[in-house]
Design a protein around this nucleic acid. Structure first.
Lengths: 169, 169
DNA sequence: TAGTACGTTCAGTCTTGACTGAACGAAACA
DNA sequence: TGTTTCGTTCAGTCAAGACTGAACGTACTA
């Protein structure tokens, strides 16, 4: 592992942090993911804080966030006090579910307005329907991507199963 | 137009502002879109500022933003000094192109890392490829949605063409 | 010409939320 | 028991960027 390689890895970790920041997630969450993509993990809690040069508080907050999103999972090693984290098997599909949820809520808001608005405002209703159909199309398309991604990931994980050495808590 | 209806409209405008804020756009941009969905427009510059209770500076900034995104267009009326704005015909597909662009840049970043990273780090390469394929799938799926939305919008606009009364600048 | 009605720009304010340090509780040691 | 090592929580700091007011340039009007 040369210094040059280390630099490439550090760059990737940092850039992925910026990408997730643009997606509305904290930068540190993206850096954690980047680290786990580069090295397979699992990483201990203290290790994450040390490598990313951030406080333990941030690690606590962001690991819980990624845990709730279903992107990483917390594991423990018998005889060790520290928590360990690693990516789950198909994290990206799981990430997308969050976006779908947000779109679903937006569509529900539109539907609420549609049903509340007097029906004689025909033009407004037409434009609302257009917006509603847009969300509908988007949600369906996302879900089909998620499904195809799920099955693909299942197939490839069947090809080369990973034996977990830690116990999931 | 009862006060109750006004309330429903104001609620929608406000909520759409929050939705776009969650999508990473300024809240005022969403409110402008909400107003244009509710009333067909076109709206004058001063009218937007007055109805949304925001400064002209914010209107200037956010109309330019939406203009650059291709969501609204600026028009002018012969004999009037004010600028007018209205939504373009298929704003949602245009909105999505921005997201696709962002994903494309993210994928390029991943590809850059793939080509820079020494090839003996096989596990890392495998995980990077997985991420790359994820973006690939997502981009393709988005583009197919945009395409279908484009053709659909073309069809429906052919059914009931709108005669513009203003000249596009 | 001066005056008015525009839209834009920019310095400054304010809000939001990421991040930290310190205090804390719990659990494993001694 | 006390001590150490964990992760969590919370008040506080800091930074980013949305938003505003005021100054400005431009183009029309009289």
């Amino acid at each position: 592992m040369t210094a040059h390689t280390d630099q490439i890895i550090a760059d990737f970790v940092e850039r992925l942090g910026l990408v997730t920041q643009a997606d509305g997630l904290p930068r540190i969450a993206g850096r954690i993911m980047g680290l786990m993509i580069m090295h397979g993990g699992p990483f201990s809690f203290a290790d994450l804080a040390e490598r990313l040069l951030v406080s333990r508080a941030s690690i606590s907050t962001n690991t819980r966030l990624l845990e709730n999103l279903g992107v990483i999972e917390r594991t423990s090693v018998p005889g060790e006090r520290q928590d360990y984290f690693r990516m789950r098997s198909n994290p990206y599909a799981l990430l997308m579910r969050g976006y779908v949820e947000r779109m679903r809520r937006a569509r529900e808001m539109v539907e609420g307005t549609q049903s509340d608005l007097p029906s004689d405002l025909e033009d407004a209703h037409e434009r609302l329907m257009e917006l509603n159909e847009f969300y509908e199309t988007l949600i369906e398309s996302f879900e089909s991507v998620i499904d195809s991604w799920d099955t693909k990931s299942k197939t490839s994980s069947a090809e080369r199963p990973r034996e977990p050495v830690e116990q999931t808590v």
